[in-house]
C-alpha cells in the first residue's frame, strides 16, 4: 500500500477514534510521543524523540493495586486496570527493538508481569524507517537496520521518489496478523493513482555514521569485572539517572506506595541503578556502594549480562544517553575502550 504524507492527518484522526494514538511531536520543548489530537502536530522528521516510547508500556508511575480495610475491618487488595488500545505511530526501528528487550524481561522467565502484558497485548506498533540517522545514532553497530523493524506490526518506509506535488510517499507493509487486520482502517487513505511498484522504498543502504565494533565485547566484559576501566570511567559520572531514564530499554523499577488516611495505592516507578539508594539494604549495607560499581553494573548489564540471559544486547543504539549525558560519558567510547583493552577472551 502506498500512503501519501498528505493523507496522514486524515488517517491519524480516523485511527484516534478507536484507540489512543501516539505520534512523535514536540511538547513543552521536549520531543516525545504525544497523544494525537487535532491540536497536535506530528513531526516525523524527529529521528529520535528525547523520551523513548517505553512508558506507554512501562509508565514512570504505574499504579498496581489499591488497598485498605473494609467496614468490618477486613483488609482488601484490588487491582488497578488501566490498559487501553494504543497505537504508537512512527516508532523508530531502535525503539521497536527496545520493546523486544522489554518483552523478554516482563513476559518470560517464569513470571509474566500482568500490567505490562495487559498493555502489550493492546499495543499496535507502527514503525517508520529512518532515512536520516542522527549523528548520535549507532543502531547498525548493535545489529539493527535503520530501515527494518521486524517486530513492528506495520512498517512505513518513506519511498525514494516523490511525486510532482512534492508529497512524500510511504510504502506501507503489514508485518503481523495484527498489523494486517489493522490495515483495513487504512484502505480509504491509500494512494489509488499509483502502485507499490512505482516506488522504491528507502533502502538498507541507510546507515549510521557513528560506528562501533561489538566483536568480542560481551566475551571480554566477562573477564573485565575487576578491570581498572570502571574506576577510570566512572570518575566523571555524576550518578544522575538521565541515561537510564531516557534509555528505551532500561527497565529497573522500585515499588512504593501512596497513602491517604486508611487507604492507599501501591505503584511501581522507574528507578535507576545509578542511584545510591537503589541497592541499599535495610540496615545500611550496600552491595553497590561505590560509583564505579554502579557504573559497571549499568554497562555490564547492557552489554554483557543481558545478552547472557536473553541472547541480545540491552543497547539498541538509539544514542539518547550519548546525547543527554551531562558529562558526555559515552557508551560508544566505552565500547571502543573495551575493544582496545588487552583482555584475553
Amino acid at each position: 500500500m502506498i500512503l501519501r504524507h498528505s493523507s496522514l492527518e486524515g488517517l491519524l484522526s480516523t485511527l484516534s477514534t478507536g484507540a489512543r494514538v501516539y505520534v512523535p511531536a514536540k511538547a513543552d520543548g521536549v520531543t516525545k510521543f504525544v497523544l494525537y489530537s487535532s491540536s497536535v502536530r506530528p513531526d516525523f522528521s524527529i529521528t529520535n524523540t528525547t523520551m523513548p516510547p517505553k512508558d506507554l508500556l512501562f509508565p514512570q508511575t504505574q499504579h498496581m493495586y489499591r488497598y485498605g480495610t473494609d467496614a468490618e475491618g477486613v483488609p482488601y487488595v484490588e487491582p488497578v486496570h488501566d490498559a487501553d488500545d494504543v497505537i504508537v505511530f512512527g516508532m523508530r526501528p531502535c525503539d521497536v527493538r527496545s520493546i523486544e528487550c522489554m518483552d523478554d524481561v516482563f513476559l518470560t522467565k517464569g513470571f509474566v508481569d500482568v500490567s505490562y502484558q495487559a498493555k502489550r497485548e493492546r499495543l499496535l506498533m507502527v514503525a517508520m524507517a529512518c532515512t536520516a540517522p542522527a549523528p548520535t545514532c549507532f543502531c547498525n553497530s548493535m545489529g539493527l537496520c535503520p530501515t527494518a523493524a521486524p517486530l513492528a506490526d506495520i512498517l512505513l518506509r518513506p519511498a525514494g521518489a516523490t511525486d510532482a506535488s512534492g508529497d512524500t510517499a510511504y510504502l506501507v507493509e503489514a508485518q503481523s496478523e495484527k498489523g494486517q487486520a489493522a490495515l483495513a482502517q487504512w484502505e480509504s487513505y491509500k494512494a489509488t493513482d499509483t502502485s507499490d511498484a512505482d516506488f522504491e522504498p528507502v533502502s538498507a543502504a541507510v546507515s549510521c555514521s557513528l560506528k562501533v565494533s561489538m566483536v568480542g565485547v560481551k566475551d571480554k566484559l566477562e573477564a573485565m569485572f575487576d578491570h581498572p576501566i570502571w574506576e577510570q570511567l566512572s570518575k566523571k559520572c555524576i550518578t544522575c539517572g538521565t541515561c537510564t531514564f531516557v534509555c528505551p530499554t532500561c527497565h529497573c523499577f522500585d515499588i512504593s506506595q501512596e497513602n491517604r488516611l486508611s487507604e492507599g495505592t501501591r505503584f511501581r516507578c522507574w528507578d535507576s541503578c545509578m542511584f545510591t539508594a537503589y541497592t541499599e539494604m535495610a540496615g545500611g549495607h550496600n552491595p553497590r556502594a561505590s560509583k564505579s560499581a554502579r557504573v559497571r553494573q549499568r554497562f555490564m548489564h547492557k552489554l554483557c549480562f543481558f545478552e547472557q540471559r536473553y541472547g541480545k544486547t540491552l543497547c539498541v543504539g538509539c544514542g539518547r544517553c550519548v546525547e543527554k549525558c551531562p558529562v558526555a560519558l559515552d557508551i560508544t567510547c566505552l565500547i571502543d575502550q573495551i575493544g582496545a583493552a588487552d583482555v584475553a577472551y
Binding site: 523520551m51 514512570q60 555524576i238 550518578t239 544522575c240 539517572g241 538521565t242 537510564t244 531514564f245 522507574w270 535507576s272 542511584f275 551531562p326
Partner: peptide, 9 residues
C-alpha cells in the same frame, strides 16, 4: 523526570 541531574551537578 526526576533524574536528579540538577542536584548531582
Amino acid at each position: 523526570i526526576r533524574c536528579y541531574a540538577c542536584r548531582k551537578s
